[in-house]
């Protein structure tokens, strides 16, 4: 097990290194001039040169990348061109804002999607299945910003039950997490339903039924545990993605988290912040992927570390 984890960690580090290289290259392919953005159109050549020097932008791109990696190893992600603050400190502030939203949204997805997935699988090809599946398709098709706006309008503005955006406590979590929950639950529903239907067609399920096991026991003891593996895989990646930033949701609900930071950094060519947010998102996805892979071993005895 330990050697498996070590191998996976090494593999993950290589993936992250590649991601930093790609992100760095892409950031520098954009023909913008951060020094000009900082100092404006009236700045002299000397001032621009000084800013470029201060930011290390006067060095060749490969040298800048190596410098970046060197700082990264020391836990230093650089300083934001725009905010003049350490990227680590910005990421920490924004991540702490995004974290509760991501967790609440993830829970909403699971709490809506999994029960409905089981329900529709048990009632496959019946009217309830068709109705719920159709609704899931609607949920899947709805843009987050549109659904969020509708919820805000009705439950924040017309019926002022919830706050109109911002993050001011538990109540402000409800509408954004419900928005993501409704849209994201559809994926879980469809995934679990198709996985359960596949498992329910297996011989061992038929055998269990033949031996007289009750439907409830069959579903909960034999079908769900075997069908849930792909759901866990998706849930693991999903939470990593959610924590890495919810650009549209944060925008719609004025949630100043990682997504909003990433969006603005892209607009402003704030390369250290772009790199920081990309790296954070990548680390989260890779980390949760690793956790899920390790969990497999415990959840499914058929899966072996080697």
């Amino acid at each position: 097990m330990l050697s498996y984890i070590v191998r996976r960690v090494i593999g993950s580090l290589i993936v992250l290194l590649l991601i930093t290289a790609i992100a760095f290259a892409l950031a520098y392919l954009v023909p913008s001039d951060p020094a000009r953005m900082i100092a404006g159109v009236h700045a002299s050549a000397a001032t621009l040169a000084e800013i470029r020097h201060k930011l290390g932008l006067d060095k060749p791109v490969p040298v800048q990348y190596v410098d970046y990696l060197g700082r990264l190893l020391r836990g230093n992600l650089g300083t934001s061109f725009i905010y003049d603050r350490p990227v680590v400190s910005l990421l920490k502030d924004k991540f702490l804002a995004t974290l509760p939203l991501a967790l609440a949204a993830w829970l909403a997805e699971l709490l809506i999607g999994i029960p409905l997935g089981i329900y529709t699988a048990r009632r496959a090809r019946r009217s309830a299945d068709y109705l719920v599946s159709a609704l899931a398709l609607v949920g899947l098709s709805m843009p987050v910003f549109w659904l969020g706006l509708i919820l805000l309008y009705w439950f924040g503005f017309k019926l002022p039950i919830f706050p109109l955006g911002g993050h001011t406590g538990f109540m402000s979590l409800v509408l954004p997490s419900l928005t993501i929950g409704i849209v994201g639950a559809a994926y879980y529903l469809r995934l679990l339903k198709s996985s359960m239907l596949e498992v329910m067609g297996n011989d061992y399920i038929r055998t269990a039924r033949a031996k007289g096991a009750g439907e409830r026991r069959v579903v909960w003891r034999h079908v769900v545990p075997n069908a849930v593996i792909p759901v866990i895989t998706y849930a693991g990646i999903d939470i990593g993605i959610l924590m890495g930033g919810l650009i549209m949701t944060e925008y719609t609900f004025n949630w100043n988290g990682i997504g909003a930071l990433m969006y603005e950094a892209l607009q402003q060519s704030d390369i250290p912040v772009i790199m920081g947010t990309v790296l954070l998102a990548a680390v989260l996805v890779v980390l949760f992927n690793l956790v899920v892979d390790v969990l497999y071993v415990f959840l499914d005895p058929r899966i072996r570390c080697d």
Partner: peptide, 24 residues
């Protein structure tokens, strides 16, 4: 001061006497 990186520099350099020498 180039180290500050102010967007206002171009409005007074070289108009104010000695601004360019200070900037450099």
């Amino acid at each position: 001061d180039p180290a500050i990186g102010s967007g206002g520099e171009g409005f007074i350099d070289p108009i104010v006497v000695g601004s360019t020498a200070y900037n450099k």
